[in-house]
């Protein structure tokens, strides 16, 4: 205790009591978030147990009713599928980016940033046009004779998966790239000199060392995908509706506020559980 304090006089210039005074600059932001986030969320929670009548009725019907349960299941399946597809594509790309000469990888990063920063609706619109029955992809496939009939690529699972994978890719490539670049090549050389074949080095050394990046990227994508609204709403179909879409529908179209709020809180609870696992594994400091 004593050591820590006097070793670092720069950081501990004020005693704890005075430190509270340093909380003051955070107050405007704190009050803002309290009024516009905490209060609305709390009243939403209240709605979920009071409308249409007091009790846990909304939650019971959400979890008990087959239609609603299917939406919940769908949400998990799509989120998991998108996470898996994204990871399978992102890992080799991140690997490639880590070993390419920086002039080439710079171009790739520019492409990633361009796709990431382009307006979400613009990107989704692009996929809507590309994937429609008479769209370029179907016409091209028919043109080369691979298919006779247009494939149903939109308003179904395929459309959602393509659209969401497109959006999520950068979120996995970037952390994975950071992790893989951080691996010391000497470790792999050490593995090779002791007799490991490239395949063994990959499975026993490189992959385990990139697990932190895989974990961070996948968790982020999974949590984001669970609550995604825009892309599933535009590219998905009614038969595989996701939770976010159902919440919006209940509140906006059906004016079923109680049920909508209850669904929102189920989504929030699930999100927070996964987020807590994520923080446990990676630490809050790295969550950015």
């Amino acid at each position: 205790m004593f050591e820590a304090i006097s070793n670092n006089p720069y950081r501990n210039l004020r005693a704890p009591r005075v430190g509270l005074r340093r909380l003051r600059p955070a107050l405007p932001a704190l009050i803002f978030l309290f009024v516009f986030m905490v209060v609305p969320l709390s009243s939403l929670l209240l709605l979920s147990v009071t409308k249409p009548e007091t009790g846990l009725g909304n939650y019971i019907s959400l979890l008990g009713d087959a239609t609603y349960a299917r939406v919940l299941l769908n949400t998990f399946i799509i989120a998991a599928l998108v996470t898996l597809v994204t990871l399978v594509i992102a890992y080799p790309v991140a690997w490639l980016l880590a070993i390419l000469p920086s002039r080439v990888s710079q171009i790739f990063f520019a492409i990633i940033l361009l796709s990431m920063w382009t307006n979400l609706l613009a990107r989704t619109y692009g996929w809507m046009v590309l994937l429609q029955r008479t769209g370029v992809i179907n016409r091209a496939l028919m043109g080369v004779g691979l298919i006779d009939q247009p494939l149903p690529l939109i308003n179904n699972l395929a459309g959602v998966t393509i659209g969401m994978t497109y959006i999520m890719l950068p979120y996995v490539i970037l952390p994975l790239h950071a992790t893989i670049s951080g691996i010391d090549p000497a470790i792999m050389q050490a593995a090779a000199i002791t007799g490991a074949k490239p395949r063994q080095i990959f499975w026993h050394v490189m992959l385990p060392l990139s697990l932190p990046g895989i974990g961070a990227g996948c968790m982020m994508v999974f949590v984001m995908a669970l609550g995604y609204y825009v892309t599933p709403a535009l590219l998905g179909g009614t038969s595989n509706m996701m939770l976010a879409e159902m919440i919006a529908q209940q509140v906006q179209s059906l004016l079923n506020w109680g049920l909508g709020s209850a669904a929102a809180f189920i989504l929030l609870a699930v999100t927070l559980v996964f987020y807590a696992i994520y923080v446990r594994a990676i630490g809050l400091g790295r969550v950015r």
Partner: peptide, 17 residues
């Protein structure tokens, strides 16, 4: 050595403590 109070004394003279 570190923790002997020398830096703290200097910082008091400087007015940071």
């Amino acid at each position: 050595s570190s923790g002997s109070g020398k830096t703290t004394t200097l910082f008091i003279v400087a007015g940071f403590e």
